[in-house]
Design a protein around this nucleic acid. Structure first.
Length: 571
RNA sequence: GCGCCUGUAGCUCAGCCGGAUAGAGCAACGGCCUUCUAAGCCGUAGGCCAAGGGUUCGAAUCCCUUCGGGCGCGCCA
């Protein structure tokens, strides 16, 4: 039972004792919801606001607090005190230290319940023939982190990279390749060469509009399964994925499936058929749509005037396929908020089709990325490619290592972990809905609340644990009385709340909660580290402080893993 | 025009299912390395929580209005 629950039970008992047979008093669960954290830890560990009870009890809050205080009698509470309308509880510090250090924050006590549930996560979803840039970072890292969080909580997860591999632009690209490209150039130039061909196509098409038809014809050939078209297209895809894989490898991001838009080509008929059978498809301005006027939304376009499908059709087909294949209890779509309306529309269409699981579809939306105050533009060259960003971050880390830790064993590995960690941390630091304006100096800052700061604190813990081992001091919380000072208690409080934070991060689809929590833990530990000597002559006390250090190290390593960062042991 | 999101210190943001003096980091200024990693720690300064109304014992937090910013609103995804 959690400490909070026990305090809630205690308040409940006090209430019964102080005000017997009073109707309208809250139960233990309700009381637990009322419990707060005092603004200053010096006031106590938990606070019960008595304002809540002044109505049923018809008494002033401070009087209620006094009456409750008189009824308090529990060993785990060191002191209880009335402060205004609050009753504050301070826990027995020694006891709290012992219990908290008995927790294992590297594992979640997963219920068998979760293991039977599948969560699909659709993230990254890059386009073929486009280079990976900072606009793709958030969907990639947010999705990756959500996958790890759900893995940690014991769910079965399915990570899907829903590739943008369908559309007339690929016909144009093949057309351009056939006219002006060579195999060797595409092989060596990769995505850049494909982009160059695509740009050239548009330039030439301005002069010779007939090219547009030629491009469309090539796309038709892809659709019709023409071997040559498919071969070139498949090859473009391979080249793009090989390029992207380099970035994914650097970031440590993986997927279970790369089923893109083209995968659903033969699964679209079902959508149209079902919608027709269910009488949901109506004609509007030549197109076939699902009317959503009653829901206060514009209609959802299913078929174009020419009978071709649209992206809503494809998303619905994909959802039906995933439900059949994975039987998910939840499906997350990690896509920028720009597409908010689109998701609301097709989620609603599935609901109207009679699928109750439409409620399990979640659009995990996030903010837009701009660069120095202006929107990203490949065409204008106003863009930061991820390769370049990661390389520069690693380079910066390398320079700092040369300066501060020239004797470090595996400098290159650490530079990579730290540089990339800085980028990942910054991406998952704030609430996902916030827009991000990219500035180089901010991205390459390694001081203060940054990835390197948390990693540094982790490495510092590792270093201490190595020293402790050399001195034959093994982590042991037996002498918990050595951990009753304010600084240690603050560290312990943060350690004890780690699992709640993960659960909340999962329920809100907000990994930043974990990022911030481990940052606070790092701050608290660094403060502790400066105010207290950890290894000294007193072996038993040292062992307790080493145990605390170990718990911080483990929690931080787990937290870093959850947000997709590495945890170097030296730096 | 309509809809969704957003507005907290110079900058970037926490806090937003109501509670006790609104918190961090960056930037600025001033301290701390002969002791366990100074990518660190401590301190100073910096805020009519966009504005106005309302609900409440109590509002940065909930409701309404206004203003500023972002995004979206039919055959692209």
């Amino acid at each position: 039972m959690s400490t909070k629950k026990r305090i809630a039970g205690l308040v409940f008992d006090c209430l019964q004792k102080a005000f017997p047979d009073t109707p309208g008093l809250p139960g233990p669960d309700e009381i637990e919801g009322f419990l707060e954290l005092p603004p200053d830890p010096a006031m106590g560990d938990y606070a019960f606001p008595c304002f809540r009870l002044s109505k049923p009890l018809r008494k002033a809050p401070p009087m209620i607090a006094e009456a409750l205080l008189a009824a308090v009698d529990a060993p785990e509470v060191a002191t209880a005190a009335v402060a205004g309308g609050y009753l504050n509880f301070a826990l027995n510090r020694e006891n709290f230290a012992r219990e908290t250090l008995a927790l294992d924050n590297t594992r979640y006590a997963a219920t068998a319940d979760n293991a039977a549930k599948t969560v699909c996560i659709d993230y990254s979803s890059i386009n073929i023939a486009k280079r990976f840039h900072i606009g793709h970072l958030t969907t990639t890292m947010l999705g990756h982190s959500l996958k790890r969080i759900h893995d940690f909580l014991g769910y079965r997860t399915v990570g899907i990279n829903h590739l943008g591999d369908w559309g007339t632009q690929f016909g144009k690209m093949i057309c351009a390749y056939k006219r002006w490209g060579t195999k060797a150039e595409v092989e060596t130039g990769g995505v850049d060469e494909m982009t160059r061909l695509y740009v050239r196509f548009h330039e030439e098409a301005e002069k010779a509009p007939a090219l547009e038809d030629e491009g469309r014809a090539w796309f038709k050939r892809i659709e019709d399964g023409d071997p040559e078209a498919l071969e070139i297209f498949g090859w473009f895809k391979d080249v793009t994925l090989k390029d992207a894989q380099r970035v994914y490898d650097k970031l440590g991001v993986t997927f279970d499936y790369y089923t893109g838009e083209s995968f659903y080509n033969d699964k679209m008929d079902r959508v149209v058929t079902e919608l027709t059978e269910k009488g949901l498809l109506t004609e509007s301005e030549g197109a076939r749509v699902v009317d959503l006027e009653a829901e206060g939304m514009p209609p959802c376009l299913i078929l174009k005037r020419d009978g071709a499908t649209l992206y809503a059709t494809r998303d619905i087909a994909a959802a039906l396929y995933r439900k059949d294949t994975f039987d998910f209890t939840k499906a997350l779509y990690v896509v920028a908020y720009q597409q908010d309306l689109h998701f609301r529309q097709w989620f609603k269409v599935l609901e109207k089709m009679g699928y109750p699981w439409a409620d399990d579809l979640v659009h995990v939306s996030f903010g837009m990325v701009s660069y120095e105050g202006q929107s990203l533009s490949t065409r204008k060259g106003h863009i930061i490619y991820l390769d370049e960003l990661l390389d520069r971050a690693v380079e910066k880390a390398r320079a700092i290592i040369e300066e501060k830790s020239p004797d470090l064993a595996d400098k290159e590995t650490v530079a990579r972990q730290v540089g990339i960690g800085a980028v990942v941390y910054a991406d998952l630091q704030n609430n996902r809905i916030k827009d991000i304006d990219f500035w180089w100096d901010r991205a390459l800052n390694f001081d203060g609340e940054t990835g390197p700061y948390v990693q540094y604190t982790h490495a510092r813990c590792c270093s201490l644990l190595r020293k402790a081992e050399e001195a034959d001091v093994l982590p042991d919380a037996a002498l918990a009385s050595a951990l009753t000072d304010d600084e240690a208690q603050e560290v312990l409080r943060l350690l004890s709340r780690f699992d709640e934070v993960i659960l909340e991060a999962a329920s809100r689809y907000e990994p930043s909660m974990i990022t911030r929590h481990i940052t606070r833990l790092a701050q608290a530990y660094n403060k502790y580290y400066y105010e207290h000597r950890i290894l000294d002559e007193d072996k038993a006390a040292s062992a307790a402080r080493v145990k605390l250090t170990e718990a911080v190290r483990n929690t931080m390593r787990t937290g870093l893993w959850l947000i997709g960062m590495e945890a170097p042991e030296r730096m």
